[in-house]
Design a protein around this nucleic acid. Structure first.
Lengths: 345, 345
DNA sequence: CTGAAAGCGCTTACAG
DNA sequence: CTGAAAGCGCTTACAG
C-alpha cells in the first residue's frame, strides 16, 4: 500500500504538502500541486479513508435501518435514499431488523461505534424511550412513526388520512359493507390505517363492524388467509380495504382461485402504490405513497442536518415533521357494488 | 466522547491494559479486567471502530454492488447476504449502478478507499478487463457472470440450463411455437437464457424462429410491450418463455387486458422464482433460482476468503465456481396447447 | 500480568 | 507557500 509518505519522498516534499495538494485545501503553489498529483498518480496512490475519518471526524457514511427489504415498498425507498447519498457523496449501510426491536437497538450501537454520520430509521415497532437512549448522539431521521422524538426529524405520509380517502372512495361508489384487512398488530401504521378506515365509516354514518376486520401481516399470504377468513365468516361485504398492496395481491389471488370476480362481486383497494400494483389482474386501485420521494427527502434532511452541524450554526435545526401527500390511484379492482358486467371474457 | 485514556485514568492503569481487558486478547488478571470493564461501563465508554480499523486493518464491512434493488430478485438476494453478514459480524454497504459500468467502477474505487474488507459484485454488464483493474487488491465474489475472473470466486445458477428446462417442459406439454421475450441485450444472463431456449428447441428438432424472439428489459412494462409486439406480428405461438418473472407479470397483465386466456390460449413460463410469482393470476410457472441461498453462499464465500487471508494460509483459496440448482416450479400459467376448458369462471 | 512506546495513515494548527 | 510536530483513538510487539 502506497501512503502519503511514499508520495512525499518521491516528490521531495513533506506529507503536509502532499495532503494539501491532494485535498485542495489551503494555499499551495500550482506547480507543487501539479507535481504531487502527478507522482501520486504514477505511484497509484489511493487515500485511506479510515485514516482520514479518524482525524476528520466524518465517515461519509449513513445507515438505513428497515424491517424487511423484501416488501417491494422498501427497495423503492432505498433507491430514493441512494440517489441522494450517491449525489451527495455518502455511502449507505443497510440494516435489517425484521421489526425486532432488540436487533434494531443492537444495530444502533454497532453503527455508532462504526462512527456513521447518521441514521435513517424506519421505525415500525420501536418504542420511543429505548430508542431515544440507543440513538443518543447519533443524528437520526425517523420514518413512519406517528410522533417525532426530541431533536429528530420525521418524514412520513399521513397514513390515517390516506386510509380515509380509500374508504371514502369506496363509500362514494356505493359500498356500505367494507371490510378491512389490517397490518401486523405492533406497527403504528397498522393502527393509523385502521383508524382512517373507521373515520370514513363513522363520518358516513356506518359504525365499523368488528366482524369486518381481519388481521393480516403485510404479506401476500396474510392477504390470502384473510380472504379465506372473510368468506368463512359468512358475512356480507362488497369491498375490502387492505392495509397494504402485498395484502391486496394475496387477497386478489385468493378471490381468483375461488372464482370471486373482482371488481364485479367485490372491490379491493390497497395501500402503498408499489410498482407491481399496476400489473395485477385486475390492476389494483391503491393509496399511493410517494415512496421514492420519501426516501429522497429523508436522506436530504439527514445530510442537511449533518452539514448544519459541521457548519456549527448557532442551534441544531429544530426537529421537523415532513408529511408528504398520498394519492388515490384508481384502477380496475374497484367498481360500484353489484355491477353485473364481467370485464375480461 | 470518552476514550481509552479516560477509562485508563479512572482505573489507574495504562491504555494497553484497558485495551486488553476490553478485547479479551492476551493474559490479564481477572480482577483487573473486571474493574476496567466496570469502569468502562460506568463511563459509558464505546470503542471507536474507525481507530480500531486503522490499526487492525479490517473494517468488518463488505459491500454489495447490484444493478437495481427494485427488481424483487435483489431484495431476496440482499436478505440472504445480510443474514450471513449479521451472523458473522460484518456490516453491509449497498451500492446501485443501474447496469452502468462507469458507476460500478467508480464505486469500486470509493469502496477500496473506504477499506471495505471485500465486495460481492452482481456483474450484469461489467466487462472483464476494466473490472479486474478496478477491483485489484479487493477480495471479490462475482455473481451471475459466465466466466470467472482470476482469483475470483463465482456463484451463480446455470441460466442456460434453467432456460432449457423451461422450454423442454413447454415442449413436453405439446407446444411447438414457443416465443421468447429476452432480457436487456447487454447482460450475459440474457444471452444465456436465450441460448437455453434455443438449445431445447434445436434438440427437439424445431429450429428457433427469429420472429418468435421479442426484446424485453427485465421489467413489467417490457413484458407488456413485448406481448403487444408479439400480437402485432400476427404469428402463431401457443407459449412464451420470458427471460424473468417481472417480464412474465407484464405479459400476463397485457394478455388479461386483451382477453387472451392464460393458459388456455397461451402458456407462460418465467424465470427467477420471485415470491410474487405464486400470487399472480394465474399463478406463474417459473424456473426458480435459490435466490436467498445464492446470497448466503456469496457472503459465506467472501467471508471465508477473508478469514483465510487473515489466517495467512499458504495460498489464497483458489477461485472456485459455485453453481446452485434451479427448479422448475409448475403452477397455473402453463397447460397443453389448445386446452378448451377455462379455469376461473 | 502490566506499562511505555511505536505506529496505523492521515489532517491541521503553528511557525516560518 | 511549505515543513515539523502533534494528534485522531486505538492495538501490539517489546520489555519487564
Amino acid at each position: 500500500m502506497v501512503t502519503v509518505y511514499d508520495v512525499a519522498n518521491r516528490a521531495g516534499v513533506s506529507i503536509a504538502t502532499v495532503s494539501r495538494a491532494l485535498n485542495d485545501r489551503s494555499r499551495i503553489s500550482a506547480e507543487t500541486r501539479r507535481r504531487v498529483i502527478e507522482i501520486a498518480h504514477e505511484l497509484g496512490y489511493e487515500p485511506n479513508d479510515v485514516a482520514r475519518s479518524l482525524v476528520g471526524k466524518s465517515t461519509q457514511t449513513i445507515a438505513l435501518l428497515l424491517p424487511d427489504i423484501t416488501n417491494p415498498y422498501f427497495p423503492e425507498l432505498v433507491k430514493g435514499v441512494q440517489t441522494i447519498t450517491d449525489q451527495r457523496g455518502h455511502l449507505l449501510l443497510l440494516c435489517h431488523n425484521a421489526d425486532d426491536e432488540e436487533k434494531a437497538l443492537q444495530d444502533l450501537v454497532t453503527l455508532r461505534r462504526k462512527q456513521v454520520d447518521g441514521v435513517i430509521l424506519v421505525a415500525g415497532a420501536l418504542s420511543g424511550e429505548r430508542f431515544a437512549e440507543a440513538a443518543a448522539g447519533l443524528p437520526v431521521v425517523v420514518m413512519d412513526r406517528e410522533i417525532a422524538l426530541p431533536h429528530t426529524a420525521l418524514v412520513a405520509v399521513d397514513h390515517r388520512d390516506g386510509a380515509r380517502k380509500a374508504t371514502e372512495y369506496l363509500l362514494s361508489l356505493g359500498h356500505r359493507r367494507i371490510a378491512h384487512v389490517t397490518g401486523p398488530p405492533q406497527l403504528s401504521v397498522t393502527a393509523a390505517r385502521r383508524a382512517g378506515w373507521e373515520d370514513a365509516l363513522r363520518a358516513a354514518g356506518f359504525p365499523p363492524d368488528e366482524r369486518l376486520i381481519v388481521p393480516g401481516n403485510f404479506l401476500e399470504d396474510g392477504g390470502w388467509t384473510a380472504g379465506r377468513e372473510l368468506l368463512a365468516r359468512e358475512i356480507d361485504f362488497s369491498a375490502v380495504f387492505t392495509a397494504n398492496d402485498l395484502t391486496a395481491i394475496g387477497l386478489l389471488a385468493m378471490f381468483t382461485e375461488h372464482g370471486i370476480p373482482v371488481p364485479q362481486q367485490v372491490s379491493v383497494v390497497g395501500f402503498d402504490g408499489i410498482h407491481l400494483a399496476a400489473y395485477t389482474s385486475p390492476t389494483l386501485t391503491t393509496v399511493a405513497q410517494p415512496i421514492f420521494a420519501l426516501g429522497q427527502r429523508a436522506a436530504d434532511l439527514l445530510l442537511d442536518q449533518l452539514e448544519a452541524a459541521e457548519a456549527e450554526t448557532a442551534e441544531p435545526p429544530s426537529p421537523t415533521v415532513h408529511l408528504l401527500d398520498t394519492t388515490l390511484v384508481v384502477r380496475d379492482s374497484t367498481a360500484r357494488p353489484g355491477s353485473a358486467e364481467v370485464a375480461h371474457d
